[in-house]
Simulated scan of single mutants.
Amino acid sequence: MADPYIRTALPDDEEELALLDRVTWSTLHAVTPEPQPPYPPYFDERHTPDQFLVAELDRRIVGYVRLARPTLLAANTHVLQIQGLAVTEEVRGRGVGRILIRAAVEEARRRGARRLTLRVLGHNTPARKLYEAEGFAVEGVLPEEFLLDGRYVDDVLMGRTV
């Protein structure tokens, strides 16, 4: 498999990104209920195309990473946060997630960030291993923060310098 082309999302990508989110939804990584019709707009005032880097193969989006500010505080503008990562089942395990994480680090650097953070569910071992391999370290844990499928799950904060 050739490496995917990484680019910033466009408004026209809305439907494809929304579908990707729906087909990859799982309590392994989602704390919100499974999406049900009617689906709200994917892009809104808090989720804009410029926050998304997409991985494209053969003119199809096969993954994305969302990079946004964790707060609107002026004292926090040096930090960006990964607020979503998804890869289609067909390319999972082929390095697309790793390529997206590396692209997010480069984009954070390009935007002048000093730190990049993320939150990941404690039971999401594949994601945690990927983030650790890409230089993220656990910086905090909120024990049993979420109740998912009848189980209490930790919320893990990870971060790294860019």
Rank of each mutant, 00 (worst) to 15 (best):
E15C: 01
E16H: 05
E16F: 02
L19R: 13
D21G: 10
R22I: 11
R22G: 00
V23C: 04
S26K: 04
T27S: 11
L28F: 00
H29W: 14
A30V: 00
T32H: 05
T32W: 00
P35S: 06
R46A: 11
P49D: 07
Q51G: 02
L53R: 15
L53T: 08
V54Y: 13
E56S: 14
L57P: 02
L57V: 13
R59W: 08
R60T: 12
G63V: 02
P70Y: 02
P70A: 06
L72F: 07
A75L: 09
L80D: 07
Q81W: 01
I82F: 08
A86R: 15
A86Q: 13
A86W: 01
E90K: 12
V91S: 12
V91T: 15
V91P: 08
R92T: 14
V96W: 06
V96H: 14
G97T: 07
R98C: 08
I99W: 09
R102E: 15
E106A: 15
E107Y: 09
R109Y: 01
R109L: 00
R110N: 11
R114V: 09
L116F: 10
T117Y: 04
L121Y: 10
L121M: 09
H123E: 05
P126E: 13
A127D: 03
L130M: 09
Y131V: 11
Y131W: 08
A133T: 10
E134L: 11
L142W: 15
P143Q: 08
P143A: 09
G150E: 06
D154R: 02
